[in-house]
Design a binder for these strands. Sequence first.
DNA 1: TAGACGTGGAG
DNA 2: TCTCCAAGTCT
Length: 375
Amino acid sequence: MAFDPAEILTAAKSSRRALKAALLGWFDHNKRDLPWRRTKDPYAIWISEVMLQQTQVDRVIPYYQRFLETFPTVKALAAAEVSDVLSVWRGLGYYSRARNLHAAATELSSRFKAKLPGTVDELKSLPGFGRYTAGAVASIAFDQEAPLVDGNVARVLSRLFELDGAPGDKTREAALWSLAELLVQGERPGDFNQSLMELGATVCTPSSPTCLLCPVQTHCRALAAGRVDELPPPRKLPPRKRLELAVALSHRDGNVLLARRAEKGLFGGLWEMPALIVEPGVNPYAALRKLFGKRSTIGPEMLVLERTLTHRDLVLRLFPVALPPRLKLPPEAYLEWKWVPREETKALGMSSAMESALDEVLPLEAMKGRRPKKK
DNA sequence: TAGACGTGGAG
DNA sequence: TCTCCAAGTCT
């Protein structure tokens, strides 16, 4: 083993007081003024914590404000359709977060009188609440001495205590949570947790940390050992897989044919131009013909759009498709089908990739002056 | 348990 | 261009 958890825990116990005082003092004077730090409303704090998962602060802020305006309470969120929640979430990514938010709001209404419960165990029983989010809401909104470990905390603690091991290493994870648990005990647990995250986000950054400005530099074992740059080691990501889709652009009278994806999996619950996976070696024409039937007319490929996701290389190949009148759209392929006026597509939950494709082949500008006819 | 699950910005 | 993300959760 590259490190001794028991020894680290003992060391943490002896320096706990000074470490916490330094971090809290630093936090009080250096914390960023963020919208979710201006409220004690557990609901608002919950929303912010979910949005911030794997997402940068700058991107979250406008979404956070719009979300709370649209769904100001648990009740309002529970009363909404999940498609409306996805519409507000549009472009933020990891859409299961939005679906779980809605599902949890429903459960909160039935099980907890539409209020967030104040304990980690109760919170963890709700969809979308893992160990981190439960700890965050319990400590920040309810002043519970609940630990939390996110990417920031893991990095800060790894350096402070010279904790070896790669992200995902079980021994390392256990040691991190033990440390967090030990350190959070005492006054202002929410602020303390936030101080660790804030330090990681602004000072103890992954690359080029500003150790000279660090309030706990004298406690930092990695700094003393000259190992700040090598802790924690970068995690290795699996290679991306290629996902190629044949996408049908079908429009008439200013309306675009859209369909809503099944709730699970990639882009779950989102609207899109009807699309099919093109397996290697398969002719996209044949795939689209199979979906829409022999009487449809498929034109030449009009656009190839590539997007890189964390785990996939996404390729969208667009084809114009003319459908015969009164064609029955295959109900098994999607949750629902709809002809949507072009200028109303922005109000639907849609992935950024699909939105880009739609903008390319059917710019809003070109639709000006056309009167959409409702069918 | 490792892989699925988005996005646009930073270096 | 290209890599690597950023306050994780679910299966």
